[in-house]
């Protein structure tokens, strides 16, 4: 039994979205739904301004509110701590979606079930990395067993100051961030899903 987690080092994330597209490809995630996105946030005033890139996904929380909220038992915790949803047991009551502080769960209409990041348990079972980790060109995403002091993730977590997204939600996330510029508070109000209403319309008023 491992305690699987992910560490994302924001110092070397280039905001390329490879992680997000790799996840789409791995799971045929429908358009409009996301398991993994990269938030862009600008901070500062001209000329002292920068842009942060913050990849976000399900946190596979130790205290997972979605798990406790699901009345049908469709949300389950796997042996290595991953939180996943069993298609067949989901009756689309959406309680998990309402409970998740990260907006990490969506409805896959095609499959008729709630869906979310699985920490790629089908790949890790074969000894491979999650698709998003594999795709990351800069290796700013590290995946592994937080309980194994030899693992790269544990070493890097120990060597750096690490933090989590929305700590105040009290869910004890297992996605850790190295965030020296303190960017995570800037997306306190956001979730994993993309705001599909945010674009400016091209239709003349």
């Amino acid at each position: 039994m491992a305690r699987l987690g992910m560490l994302i080092d924001l110092r070397t994330c280039i905001g390329c979205h490879a992680c997000s597209v790799a996840c789409k490809a791995e799971f045929d995630v429908p358009l409009g739904n996301f398991r993994d996105t990269v938030k862009y946030v600008e901070e500062g005033a001209y000329p002292k301004v920068t842009r942060h890139f913050i990849p976000v996904l399900c946190n596979h929380c130790e205290d997972a509110p979605c798990l406790s909220a699901c009345p049908t038992g469709a949300v389950v915790r796997l042996d290595d701590g991953q939180v996943t949803i069993e298609d067949g047991d989901c009756n689309l009551n959406r309680a998990c979606m309402a409970a998740c502080p990260y907006d990490a769960i969506y409805v896959d209409e095609d499959r008729g079930a709630a869906a979310k990041c699985t920490f790629c348990d089908h790949r890790t079972a074969e000894g491979r990395q999650p698709a998003c980790v594999d795709a990351c060109p800069t290796n700013c995403r590290v995946f592994g067993d937080l309980d194994d002091p030899e693992s790269e993730i544990a070493v890097r977590a120990a060597a750096n100051d690490v933090t989590v997204w929305k700590e105040s939600a009290g869910t004890r996330p297992k996605v850790l961030y190295v965030d020296p510029k303190n960017a995570l508070p800037l997306i306190e109000e956001q979730g994993v899903q993309v705001d599909t209403t945010a674009d400016l319309s091209g239709e003349p008023a």
């Binding site: 979205h17 490879a18 597209v21 790799a22 490809a25 795709a135 060109p137 800069t138």
Partner: peptide, 15 residues
């Protein structure tokens, strides 16, 4: 050159 890295465009090839 790329040493095993690709970007989002590369990953999106099937589309």
């Amino acid at each position: 050159n790329s040493r095993g890295a690709v970007c989002a465009k590369g990953v999106a090839g099937p589309s």
